[in-house]
Protein backbone atom coordinates (compact mmCIF):
# COMPACT_ATOMS: atom_id res chain seq x y z
CA UNK A 1 0.00 0.00 0.00
CA UNK A 2 1.37 3.42 -0.96
CA UNK A 3 0.37 6.64 0.73
CA UNK A 4 0.07 10.05 -0.86
CA UNK A 5 -1.25 13.50 -0.25
CA UNK A 6 -3.41 15.08 -2.93
CA UNK A 7 -4.48 18.69 -2.82
CA UNK A 8 -8.23 19.03 -3.14
CA UNK A 9 -8.35 21.32 -6.21
CA UNK A 10 -5.93 18.97 -7.97
CA UNK A 11 -8.20 16.01 -7.37
CA UNK A 12 -11.28 17.88 -8.58
CA UNK A 13 -9.38 18.84 -11.73
CA UNK A 14 -8.48 15.20 -12.25
CA UNK A 15 -12.08 14.10 -11.86
CA UNK A 16 -13.22 16.73 -14.34
CA UNK A 17 -10.60 15.55 -16.80
CA UNK A 18 -11.46 11.88 -16.31
CA UNK A 19 -15.15 12.66 -16.71
CA UNK A 20 -14.36 14.21 -20.08
CA UNK A 21 -12.12 11.40 -21.26
CA UNK A 22 -13.79 8.31 -19.91
CA UNK A 23 -16.84 7.25 -17.92
CA UNK A 24 -16.77 8.29 -14.28
CA UNK A 25 -19.55 6.99 -12.08
CA UNK A 26 -20.10 8.64 -8.71
CA UNK A 27 -22.84 9.36 -6.16
CA UNK A 28 -25.03 12.27 -7.27
CA UNK A 29 -28.12 13.78 -5.71
CA UNK A 30 -31.39 11.94 -6.24
CA UNK A 31 -34.26 13.58 -4.37
CA UNK A 32 -33.49 13.18 -0.67
CA UNK A 33 -31.04 10.33 -1.39
CA UNK A 34 -28.22 9.79 -3.86
CA UNK A 35 -27.54 7.38 -6.68
CA UNK A 36 -24.48 6.23 -8.61
CA UNK A 37 -24.56 7.75 -12.06
CA UNK A 38 -22.15 8.91 -14.76
CA UNK A 39 -20.95 12.45 -14.01
CA UNK A 40 -19.62 15.26 -16.17
CA UNK A 41 -17.81 17.17 -13.42
CA UNK A 42 -16.59 16.81 -9.84
CA UNK A 43 -19.13 19.38 -8.71
CA UNK A 44 -21.92 16.82 -9.12
CA UNK A 45 -20.46 14.41 -6.57
CA UNK A 46 -22.11 13.98 -3.18
CA UNK A 47 -19.17 13.09 -0.95
CA UNK A 48 -20.79 11.96 2.28
CA UNK A 49 -24.38 11.28 3.29
CA UNK A 50 -27.00 10.50 2.17
CA UNK A 51 -26.30 7.04 0.90
CA UNK A 52 -27.22 5.79 -2.58
CA UNK A 53 -30.52 3.88 -2.83
CA UNK A 54 -28.86 0.90 -4.48
CA UNK A 55 -25.22 -0.12 -4.20
CA UNK A 56 -22.68 0.20 -7.03
CA UNK A 57 -22.89 -3.54 -7.74
CA UNK A 58 -25.11 -2.63 -10.69
CA UNK A 59 -22.04 -1.55 -12.67
CA UNK A 60 -20.32 -4.90 -12.22
CA UNK A 61 -23.39 -7.06 -12.16
CA UNK A 62 -26.21 -5.16 -13.88
CA UNK A 63 -29.89 -5.51 -13.01
CA UNK A 64 -30.35 -7.21 -16.35
CA UNK A 65 -27.54 -8.45 -18.55
CA UNK A 66 -27.53 -10.51 -21.72
CA UNK A 67 -25.67 -13.78 -21.38
CA UNK A 68 -26.25 -14.88 -24.95
CA UNK A 69 -27.73 -13.60 -28.14
CA UNK A 70 -28.91 -15.96 -30.85
CA UNK A 71 -30.42 -15.96 -34.28
CA UNK A 72 -32.33 -18.60 -36.12
CA UNK A 73 -31.41 -19.46 -39.66
CA UNK A 74 -32.24 -22.66 -41.55
CA UNK A 75 -34.10 -23.84 -38.49
CA UNK A 76 -31.00 -23.71 -36.33
CA UNK A 77 -29.97 -21.37 -33.55
CA UNK A 78 -26.68 -19.55 -33.97
CA UNK A 79 -25.07 -17.94 -30.93
CA UNK A 80 -23.96 -14.41 -31.71
CA UNK A 81 -21.49 -12.21 -29.88
CA UNK A 82 -22.12 -9.78 -27.06
CA UNK A 83 -20.90 -6.23 -26.57
CA UNK A 84 -17.37 -5.56 -25.37
CA UNK A 85 -16.79 -4.16 -21.89
CA UNK A 86 -15.90 -0.47 -21.42
CA UNK A 87 -13.29 0.99 -19.06
CA UNK A 88 -14.91 2.96 -16.23
CA UNK A 89 -13.96 4.72 -13.03
CA UNK A 90 -16.19 3.98 -10.08
CA UNK A 91 -15.64 6.92 -7.77
CA UNK A 92 -16.73 7.77 -4.25
CA UNK A 93 -17.51 4.26 -3.11
CA UNK A 94 -17.90 4.00 0.66
CA UNK A 95 -16.12 1.35 2.74
CA UNK A 96 -19.26 -0.82 3.19
CA UNK A 97 -19.57 -1.09 -0.60
CA UNK A 98 -15.83 -1.55 -1.12
CA UNK A 99 -15.96 -4.50 1.24
CA UNK A 100 -18.98 -5.85 -0.60
CA UNK A 101 -17.20 -5.56 -3.96
CA UNK A 102 -14.19 -7.32 -2.45
CA UNK A 103 -16.50 -10.11 -1.34
CA UNK A 104 -18.20 -10.33 -4.72
CA UNK A 105 -14.79 -10.57 -6.37
CA UNK A 106 -14.23 -13.77 -4.44
CA UNK A 107 -17.71 -15.16 -5.05
CA UNK A 108 -17.69 -14.70 -8.82
CA UNK A 109 -14.13 -15.95 -9.21
CA UNK A 110 -14.59 -19.00 -7.03
CA UNK A 111 -14.60 -22.49 -8.65
CA UNK A 112 -16.37 -21.55 -11.88
CA UNK A 113 -15.12 -18.06 -12.72
CA UNK A 114 -17.92 -15.91 -14.06
CA UNK A 115 -16.48 -13.95 -16.98
CA UNK A 116 -19.52 -11.69 -17.22
CA UNK A 117 -18.66 -10.22 -13.83
CA UNK A 118 -14.90 -10.54 -13.93
CA UNK A 119 -14.50 -8.80 -17.30
CA UNK A 120 -16.46 -5.81 -16.06
CA UNK A 121 -14.57 -5.85 -12.81
CA UNK A 122 -11.24 -5.77 -14.60
CA UNK A 123 -12.35 -2.70 -16.55
CA UNK A 124 -13.26 -0.77 -13.39
CA UNK A 125 -10.95 1.54 -11.49
CA UNK A 126 -12.28 1.55 -7.97
CA UNK A 127 -11.84 4.75 -5.99
CA UNK A 128 -13.13 4.71 -2.43
CA UNK A 129 -13.91 7.62 -0.17
CA UNK A 130 -13.85 7.24 3.59
CA UNK A 131 -16.92 8.06 5.68
CA UNK A 132 -16.36 10.62 8.43
CA UNK A 133 -19.87 10.41 9.81
CA UNK A 134 -22.59 7.71 9.60
CA UNK A 135 -24.59 8.15 6.40
CA UNK A 136 -27.87 7.41 8.18
CA UNK A 137 -29.33 6.13 11.41
CA UNK A 138 -29.67 2.74 9.68
CA UNK A 139 -25.94 2.28 9.17
CA UNK A 140 -24.40 -0.60 11.12
CA UNK A 141 -21.07 -0.76 9.31
CA UNK A 142 -18.81 -0.33 12.34
CA UNK A 143 -20.57 -3.26 14.03
CA UNK A 144 -20.29 -5.57 11.06
CA UNK A 145 -16.69 -4.95 10.15
CA UNK A 146 -17.61 -2.88 7.13
CA UNK A 147 -16.05 0.48 7.99
CA UNK A 148 -12.48 -0.62 7.40
CA UNK A 149 -12.08 -1.09 3.63
CA UNK A 150 -9.25 -3.59 4.13
CA UNK A 151 -7.44 -2.61 0.98
CA UNK A 152 -10.34 -3.51 -1.30
CA UNK A 153 -9.85 -0.62 -3.73
CA UNK A 154 -7.46 0.79 -6.26
CA UNK A 155 -7.35 4.15 -4.53
CA UNK A 156 -8.87 5.26 -1.25
CA UNK A 157 -9.31 8.88 -0.19
CA UNK A 158 -9.76 10.31 3.27
CA UNK A 159 -10.55 13.99 3.71
CA UNK A 160 -8.06 15.25 6.30
CA UNK A 161 -9.11 18.87 6.02
CA UNK A 162 -6.71 20.68 3.77
CA UNK A 163 -6.12 17.71 1.45
CA UNK A 164 -6.99 14.10 0.72
CA UNK A 165 -4.92 11.38 2.25
CA UNK A 166 -4.72 8.76 -0.51
CA UNK A 167 -3.85 5.11 -0.27
CA UNK A 168 -3.19 3.12 -3.41
CA UNK A 169 -3.62 -0.63 -3.14
CA UNK A 170 -2.82 -1.29 -6.79
CA UNK A 171 -0.68 0.02 -9.63
CA UNK A 172 -3.90 1.15 -11.29
CA UNK A 173 -4.65 3.32 -8.26
CA UNK A 174 -1.17 4.80 -8.27
CA UNK A 175 -1.29 5.52 -11.97
CA UNK A 176 -4.61 7.30 -11.64
CA UNK A 177 -3.08 10.06 -9.50
CA UNK A 178 0.31 10.10 -11.19
CA UNK A 179 1.64 13.64 -11.35
CA UNK A 180 -0.66 15.22 -8.80
CA UNK A 181 0.37 13.36 -5.70
CA UNK A 182 3.00 14.06 -3.08
CA UNK A 183 4.31 11.37 -0.77
CA UNK A 184 2.55 11.37 2.60
CA UNK A 185 4.70 12.66 5.47
CA UNK A 186 4.65 11.53 9.09
CA UNK A 187 2.56 14.57 10.02
CA UNK A 188 -0.03 13.60 7.41
CA UNK A 189 -0.18 10.13 8.85
CA UNK A 190 -0.83 11.63 12.26
CA UNK A 191 -3.60 13.80 10.85
CA UNK A 192 -5.16 10.73 9.27
CA UNK A 193 -5.00 8.77 12.54
CA UNK A 194 -6.62 11.66 14.40
CA UNK A 195 -9.41 11.97 11.80
CA UNK A 196 -10.04 8.22 11.87
CA UNK A 197 -10.06 8.09 15.65
CA UNK A 198 -12.59 10.89 15.92
CA UNK A 199 -14.66 9.30 13.19
CA UNK A 200 -14.69 5.86 14.79
CA UNK A 201 -15.76 7.35 18.12
CA UNK A 202 -18.63 9.10 16.34
CA UNK A 203 -19.77 5.88 14.62
CA UNK A 204 -19.53 4.03 17.91
CA UNK A 205 -21.73 6.61 19.55
CA UNK A 206 -24.34 6.79 16.80
CA UNK A 207 -24.67 3.27 15.43
CA UNK A 208 -26.97 0.77 17.03
CA UNK A 209 -25.05 -1.63 19.27
CA UNK A 210 -24.44 -5.21 18.31
CA UNK A 211 -25.05 -7.21 21.49
CA UNK A 212 -23.32 -10.49 20.62
CA UNK A 213 -19.64 -10.36 19.70
CA UNK A 214 -18.98 -10.02 15.97
CA UNK A 215 -16.91 -13.17 15.95
CA UNK A 216 -19.73 -15.13 17.58
CA UNK A 217 -22.38 -14.17 15.00
CA UNK A 218 -22.09 -17.28 12.89
CA UNK A 219 -22.28 -19.63 15.86
CA UNK A 220 -25.21 -17.68 17.27
CA UNK A 221 -27.13 -18.06 14.02
CA UNK A 222 -26.37 -21.72 13.62
CA UNK A 223 -27.60 -22.48 17.12
CA UNK A 224 -30.89 -20.69 16.59
CA UNK A 225 -32.41 -22.15 13.49
CA UNK A 226 -35.71 -22.65 15.31
CA UNK A 227 -35.76 -19.36 17.20
CA UNK A 228 -39.21 -17.71 17.26
CA UNK A 229 -37.68 -14.57 15.77
CA UNK A 230 -37.93 -16.08 12.26
CA UNK A 231 -41.63 -16.78 12.52
CA UNK A 232 -42.46 -13.49 14.24
CA UNK A 233 -40.58 -11.34 11.79
CA UNK A 234 -41.33 -13.56 8.78
CA UNK A 235 -45.05 -13.01 9.32
CA UNK A 236 -44.54 -9.39 8.35
CA UNK A 237 -42.46 -10.09 5.27
CA UNK A 238 -43.92 -8.95 1.96
CA UNK A 239 -41.63 -11.18 -0.03
CA UNK A 240 -40.97 -7.98 -1.95
CA UNK A 241 -37.26 -8.59 -2.38
CA UNK A 242 -36.40 -4.98 -1.56
CA UNK A 243 -33.75 -6.10 0.92
CA UNK A 244 -32.20 -8.30 -1.77
CA UNK A 245 -32.21 -5.65 -4.45
CA UNK A 246 -30.54 -2.97 -2.30
CA UNK A 247 -28.00 -5.34 -0.78
CA UNK A 248 -24.41 -4.96 -2.00
CA UNK A 249 -23.74 -8.66 -1.35
CA UNK A 250 -26.93 -10.24 -2.69
CA UNK A 251 -26.00 -11.76 -6.02
CA UNK A 252 -28.68 -14.32 -6.90
CA UNK A 253 -30.08 -14.15 -10.39
CA UNK A 254 -32.84 -15.52 -12.56
CA UNK A 255 -32.34 -16.37 -16.22
CA UNK A 256 -34.95 -15.58 -18.85
CA UNK A 257 -35.06 -15.91 -22.61
CA UNK A 258 -36.56 -13.04 -24.55
CA UNK A 259 -37.54 -13.96 -28.08
CA UNK A 260 -38.21 -11.27 -30.62
CA UNK A 261 -41.81 -11.35 -31.86
CA UNK A 262 -40.52 -12.16 -35.36
CA UNK A 263 -39.18 -15.41 -33.84
CA UNK A 264 -35.89 -15.00 -35.74
CA UNK A 265 -33.70 -13.79 -32.87
CA UNK A 266 -33.58 -13.56 -29.13
CA UNK A 267 -31.46 -13.07 -26.05
CA UNK A 268 -30.92 -14.95 -22.83
CA UNK A 269 -30.53 -12.55 -19.92
CA UNK A 270 -29.81 -12.82 -16.29
CA UNK A 271 -31.80 -10.56 -13.99
CA UNK A 272 -31.36 -9.83 -10.30
CA UNK A 273 -33.47 -12.18 -8.24
CA UNK A 274 -34.22 -12.22 -4.53
CA UNK A 275 -34.36 -15.20 -2.18
CA UNK A 276 -37.10 -13.43 -0.24
CA UNK A 277 -39.57 -13.61 -3.12
CA UNK A 278 -42.29 -16.24 -3.20
CA UNK A 279 -41.14 -18.29 -6.17
CA UNK A 280 -37.40 -18.18 -5.66
CA UNK A 281 -37.05 -21.90 -4.86
CA UNK A 282 -40.11 -23.14 -6.76
CA UNK A 283 -39.47 -25.72 -9.47
CA UNK A 284 -41.39 -26.29 -12.71
CA UNK A 285 -43.42 -29.15 -11.24
CA UNK A 286 -44.84 -26.76 -8.64
CA UNK A 287 -42.90 -27.85 -5.54
CA UNK A 288 -41.70 -24.83 -3.55
CA UNK A 289 -38.63 -25.69 -1.51
CA UNK A 290 -38.75 -22.53 0.60
CA UNK A 291 -42.40 -21.68 0.76
CA UNK A 292 -42.48 -20.15 4.22
CA UNK A 293 -41.67 -16.44 4.52
CA UNK A 294 -39.95 -17.06 7.84
CA UNK A 295 -37.66 -19.64 6.23
CA UNK A 296 -36.80 -17.21 3.50
CA UNK A 297 -35.93 -14.52 6.05
CA UNK A 298 -33.78 -17.04 7.86
CA UNK A 299 -32.09 -18.06 4.63
CA UNK A 300 -31.19 -14.49 3.73
CA UNK A 301 -29.88 -13.75 7.22
CA UNK A 302 -27.91 -16.99 7.32
CA UNK A 303 -26.28 -16.26 4.01
CA UNK A 304 -24.94 -13.02 5.42
CA UNK A 305 -24.07 -14.12 8.95
CA UNK A 306 -23.53 -17.85 8.82
CA UNK A 307 -22.97 -19.66 5.48
CA UNK A 308 -20.72 -17.14 3.77
CA UNK A 309 -19.26 -16.00 7.08
CA UNK A 310 -18.04 -19.52 7.76
CA UNK A 311 -16.81 -20.04 4.26
CA UNK A 312 -14.87 -16.79 3.85
CA UNK A 313 -14.22 -15.78 7.45
CA UNK A 314 -16.19 -12.54 7.54
CA UNK A 315 -19.75 -11.28 7.69
CA UNK A 316 -21.35 -10.89 4.28
CA UNK A 317 -23.46 -8.11 5.71
CA UNK A 318 -21.12 -5.14 5.51
CA UNK A 319 -23.50 -2.99 7.51
CA UNK A 320 -24.48 -0.52 4.80
CA UNK A 321 -27.96 -0.35 6.32
CA UNK A 322 -29.79 -0.19 2.99
CA UNK A 323 -32.03 -3.15 3.77
CA UNK A 324 -32.79 -1.72 7.19
CA UNK A 325 -34.08 1.36 5.40
CA UNK A 326 -35.79 -0.43 2.51
CA UNK A 327 -37.76 -2.91 4.61
CA UNK A 328 -41.11 -1.23 5.21
CA UNK A 329 -42.08 -3.56 8.04
CA UNK A 330 -38.67 -3.28 9.70
CA UNK A 331 -38.05 -6.99 10.01
CA UNK A 332 -34.88 -7.58 8.05
CA UNK A 333 -31.98 -5.87 9.85
CA UNK A 334 -29.32 -8.54 10.40
CA UNK A 335 -28.06 -6.65 13.44
CA UNK A 336 -31.47 -6.41 15.07
CA UNK A 337 -32.15 -10.08 14.37
CA UNK A 338 -28.82 -11.03 15.93
CA UNK A 339 -29.54 -8.83 18.94
CA UNK A 340 -32.98 -10.28 19.40
CA UNK A 341 -31.75 -13.84 19.22
CA UNK A 342 -28.94 -12.98 21.62
CA UNK A 343 -31.20 -11.41 24.22
CA UNK A 344 -34.07 -13.90 23.92
CA UNK A 345 -32.40 -17.20 24.65
CA UNK A 346 -34.50 -20.25 23.90
Amino acid sequence: MKQFIIKKPKLFELIDKLARETTVIAPVKQENFTSFAPITSAAEIVWGAPQTVIPPKQFLYPQSEDLLAYEFGNGEARITGLNAVKERVLFGVHPCDLNAIGQMDRIWAEKNPDANYLEKRKAITLVGVDCLAPCSSDAICLRLNGLDPKGRFDLFLTDIGSAFYAEAATKKGEALVEGLRAPAKAADGKRLTAVQKKRTALFDKQEKKLLPKYKDLSKLMKANIDHPVWEERGKLCYGCGSCNMVCPTCYCFDVQDYMHVSLVKGVRSRVWDGCMTEEFAKVASGENFREDRSHRLRHRTYRKLNYLYDKWGESFCTGCGRCVKACLTKIVSPLEIANEIYSRKI
Binding site: I107, E110, D114, C252, F253, V255, D273, F280, A281
Partner: peptide, 12 residues
Amino acid sequence: RKMKCGVGKCGH
Protein backbone atom coordinates in the same frame (compact mmCIF):
# COMPACT_ATOMS: atom_id res chain seq x y z
CA ARG B 1 -34.05 -28.35 -6.58
CA LYS B 2 -34.44 -25.36 -8.86
CA MET B 3 -31.13 -25.53 -10.69
CA LYS B 4 -30.94 -22.55 -12.92
CA CYS B 5 -27.25 -21.93 -13.58
CA GLY B 6 -25.69 -25.29 -12.69
CA VAL B 7 -22.44 -23.61 -11.66
CA GLY B 8 -23.11 -22.58 -8.06
CA LYS B 9 -23.83 -18.91 -8.69
CA CYS B 10 -27.52 -18.15 -9.13
CA GLY B 11 -28.54 -19.29 -5.66
CA HIS B 12 -31.83 -21.01 -6.47
